[in-house]
C-alpha cells in the first residue's frame, strides 16, 4: 500500500485530506509541524510527502530542504501545498527540490493525479 506523509498544521485540513486519501487507498501518516515532518520522514520512509508551506516556526521550504539534504530521505518526492499560486512560490518549490506543487484548497482529483505522477509505476494506488 502506498504510504503518504501529510505535513499540515491545521487540524481540519489534516483530518479532511487524510480521510479522503485513505478512502482512495493510501496509507496516511501525519506530522503537525516542520521538525516532526522531518522526523517522520526518517522514521516512516513514506512513498510521497505532502508538505504544507505555512507551518509556523520552521516552514515547509525549510523542512523540505532538510529532507532533501538527508541521503536516506532525499529520494522521496515532496509535493508542496500553498495557499497562493504565486510565481515566487512555484520557483521556490522547484529550487528546494519539490517534485510538484499544488494550491489549497485541494482539488482532490488533481492532487491524486500529481501524486500518481510522482510514484514509480509499481507503487500506484488503485
Amino acid at each position: 500500500m502506498t504510504k503518504i506523509l501529510l505535513v499540515e498544521d491545521n487540524e481540519d485540513n489534516r483530518d479532511m485530506l487524510g480521510r479522503r486519501l485513505s478512502r482512495h487507498g493510501f496509507s496516511v501518516c501525519f506530522a503537525i509541524d516542520g521538525p516532526s515532518g522531518v522526523r517522520m520522514a526518517h522514521n516512516e520512509l513514506p512513498d510521497v510527502i505532502l508538505m504544507d508551506i505555512a507551518l509556523g516556526e520552521m516552514d515547509g521550504w525549510e523542512a523540505t530542504r532538510l529532507i532533501k539534504d538527508d541521503p536516506r530521505t532525499t529520494g522521496i518526492p515532496v509535493i508542496a501545498l500553498t495557499a497562493h499560486a504565486l510565481a515566487s512560490d512555484r520557483s521556490r518549490s522547484v529550487e528546494v527540490g519539490c517534485a510538484d506543487y499544488d494550491t489549497k484548497p485541494v482539488d482532490l482529483p488533481r492532487l491524486l493525479g500529481k501524486i500518481n505522477a510522482c510514484l514509480p509505476g509499481g507503487a500506484r494506488a488503485a
Binding site: N10, N13, L17, R19, R20, R23, A83, K104, P105
Partner: peptide, 20 residues
C-alpha cells in the same frame, strides 16, 4: 483573503467528503 480561505477550506473539503 487568508482568513477567509481557511474556514472555506473546511466547508468545501468536508462537504466534499460528505458528498462522497
Amino acid at each position: 483573503g487568508h482568513e477567509l480561505r481557511t474556514p472555506l477550506n473546511a466547508v468545501i473539503g468536508y462537504s466534499e467528503i460528505m458528498l462522497e
